[in-house]
Write a protein that binds this DNA or RNA. Structure first.
Lengths: 131, 131, 131, 131
DNA sequence: GTGGTCTAGACCACT
DNA sequence: GTGGTCTAGACCACC
């Protein structure tokens, strides 16, 4: 799986890592139970500090996306993904609000915004199959 | 207009301010051409430093949401909101991607996600009328 | 003569006034010796404070563009315009430097920049005749 | 690169900084991709507050002259300079107008003005080679 | 009274 | 060590 980092982004590197791995899982590129590179390997591959990769893995583990075994390494959680908790839905809405507000101000209709979302949803889910 | 700040949030205060003002415009609570509080007044009201408010106003001005008149004060842009530029749409998609990826992982269908979006869109747009 | 002020400009109103009157003279719209509106009248016409117009006139007088007579009012200097002093040339170059630097950075050739200048020079000088 | 600030100038310090760095790039003294001093170092060197330097860097970043990498520092944009946009050309003409108007009033011919511009253009572009 | 600028000094997140 | 953020307090130009 190819990781694309933007060193100029306002988003911390570890966050970019987290999201890219989540996208990899969402697109099916990473299967449940599939092994991820070790902290050391990934850090070397993408040229960032060990701590940075470590922090990303730790966050993914906390949310239940991955499992980290002492000696066996890191795998996508084979027991499935974390649930659709209330906390998650609240967080989702907190993130969605400013996006929707800006869209309304700039004159996007609900249909236009939904179309963007639908398109992106399909692209992401189908992304892996097309490759 | 009531401003609610979360001082514990990872989001900078000035960003929270920016988004709340944009939400105010989106909901119709702030009308085009309407005056906003002066930098100092708003800073005093919400208990933050004047520079923090100033930064928020500066960002809103750069994006065309508000106008800052020389020594007269700040108003919601009476000439209408900024356009739906390509840059904006790109930024929107960049923000939407991780949200969609997480939703997919946790098993939200496209319909469920769309429903959340539609509900929030209507709530925000109708929010002001209900009051 | 029509004065166009931009209340949002970073340029102070009195500076905008100064430059517009200078442009009026440059274009021939205002002739040597021609009367300008009184401070009061001009202030009322364009809807700004007396002090603002006063400051503009004072600066124009200091540079020799206009004459202010106690009771007779304000006239474009009938004895001709101020000279091409070394101070003026220095000021001109100080103002030109950042413009040229930016133009170079963005890839404008000397010819392109000269063309812009020539065009603007002709437009301004011929501006009045065409009306 | 030597920075010369005029603390008495009406131009804000951060603007002077912005222009001097742009001039440095225009003259070739600063190469594409070259590292600039850190905010704190530059502030200490020229004896101003770190926020002042920060504001200058932020403006240069917004216009695409420099890149700010997360915790690595600041470099002249290695991907080249910003484009010759319509907005830039408009801004350029807005800045040029009062200069031309004054020149006309004081009797500078188009040729004399062009000569000044040409000379300054060459000086700036060749400035670095001569050293 | 308004926004704009600057200083001094602090804490934080990231690498 | 880097930039990002925030505070407190000050002075200025403008109107």
């Amino acid at each position: 799986m190819i990781i694309q980092l933007d060193m100029q982004s306002e988003l911390p590197i570890y966050s970019q890592l987290v999201y890219q791995i989540i996208e990899g899982i969402a697109s099916g590129e990473l299967q449940l139970g599939e092994a991820l590179p070790s902290v050391r390997n990934l850090a070397a591959d993408i040229g960032v500090n060990l701590h940075t990769v470590n922090k990303a893995y730790t966050l993914l583990k906390q949310d239940g996306y991955i499992q980290v075994h002492r000696q066996k390494g890191v795998v996508v959680n084979p027991d499935g993904m974390p649930d659709l908790t209330d906390d998650f839905l609240k967080k989702q809405q907190r993130e969605l609000r400013p996006i929707i507000a800006e869209a309304i101000c700039r004159g996007m209709t609900k249909e236009e915004l939904s179309a963007v979302l639908d398109q992106m949803y399909d692209d992401m889910k189908m992304g892996h199959n097309k490759e």
